[in-house]
């Protein structure tokens, strides 16, 4: 089921975007809770259990609960530490990592195929204008470019060159409620994630349509990727098909399995 939806061609699908949205939402509701509870069940080692039993934490569910609480605390610390005026370092073209690594929870050959013609970005939630956006319309908005370091949660980093619409400009165009807590993203694969509003409005947060002077290729997230040099790689969604503004915590693909939600750098 996951594989099927990942490979589905969103642009040419027979379902209406609204139906797709509802279908995905149902599927996610079915999938998410067990996945959420599983992350430490297969993750706990014997050493961890032995160590914890000494502290009165008797089973892995308690441990997981405690660790997730600390992770939520770390979200708050990172939100407090986040300076909207602090810029991530930028680099000269000569420092771009070539080839820039492909990275996803599937192989490059499995990356979703999205047809550019007839593609429309959906906008929903706490926004004044829920119009759909074609790639041409997005390309007509003011564009910017950045050469910044992508830092993966695994530890490696790579420097790339992204171009697109400053996300603050886009949020302004759709009349987003800037006092809302989250901006969420649904992607053409199974991926979904969400970010805090201050990061969404950060000067270097870019709704990218281009990579290294070319149309954003499939492997780097066609039709669009949200690039945030202030966040780790998994917070930078690719193949975005819907953007929504909300006050309800939307979680994320990796975040629901245990990655820290704020994921700041």
């Amino acid at each position: 089921m996951r594989r099927a939806s990942r490979k589905s061609n969103i642009g040419a699908s027979a379902l209406s975007p609204r139906d797709q949205h509802e279908l995905l939402k149902d599927a996610r509701a079915l999938l998410a809770p067990p996945a959420r509870r599983l992350f430490l069940r297969h993750g706990m080692t014997l050493g961890g259990l032995v160590m914890l039993s000494g502290c009165g934490v008797s089973n892995s569910a308690d441990a997981e609960h405690l660790l997730m609480k600390v992770s939520r605390f770390n979200d708050k610390v990172q939100a407090w530490l986040f300076d909207p005026n602090k810029l991530a370092p930028t680099y000269p073209e000569s420092m771009i990592t070539r080839p820039f690594p492909f990275n996803a929870y599937y192989s490059e050959a499995e990356a979703p195929v999205v047809e550019g013609n007839g593609f429309f970005l959906q906008v929903s939630g706490r926004v004044e204008r829920r119009d759909i956006w074609s790639l041409e319309q997005l390309a007509a908005l003011p564009q910017e470019e950045q050469i910044t370091r992508h830092i993966c949660v695994e530890g490696w980093s790579a420097i790339g060159r992204w171009g697109g619409v400053p996300f603050a400009t886009f949020l302004e165009r759709i009349g987003a409620d800037r006092s809302a807590r989250y901006v969420g993203f649904r992607c053409a694969d199974d991926y979904f994630t969400s970010i805090d509003m201050p990061t969404a409005l950060h000067r270097q947060t870019l709704l990218t349509l281009r990579y290294d002077g070319q149309t954003l290729p499939r492997k780097y997230g066609f039709p669009m990727k949200l690039r945030m040099p202030t966040k780790l790689g998994y917070k930078n969604p690719k193949h975005i098909v819907e953007i929504f503004v909300t006050n309800d915590y939307p979680g994320g693909y990796w975040e629901d399995q245990g990655y820290n939600w704020f994921g700041g750098s």
């Binding site: 992350f39 297969h42 993750g43 080692t45 050493g47 770390n74 245990g258 990655y259 820290n260």
Partner: peptide, 21 residues
């Protein structure tokens, strides 16, 4: 892997960023 804690990257990160405090 037997002498590491967390089982997978996500679990290890949770332990690491809790114990750091």
């Amino acid at each position: 892997k037997q002498i590491t804690l967390g089982g997978w990257l996500g679990g290890a990160l949770l332990w690491h960023f809790a114990a750091m405090w």
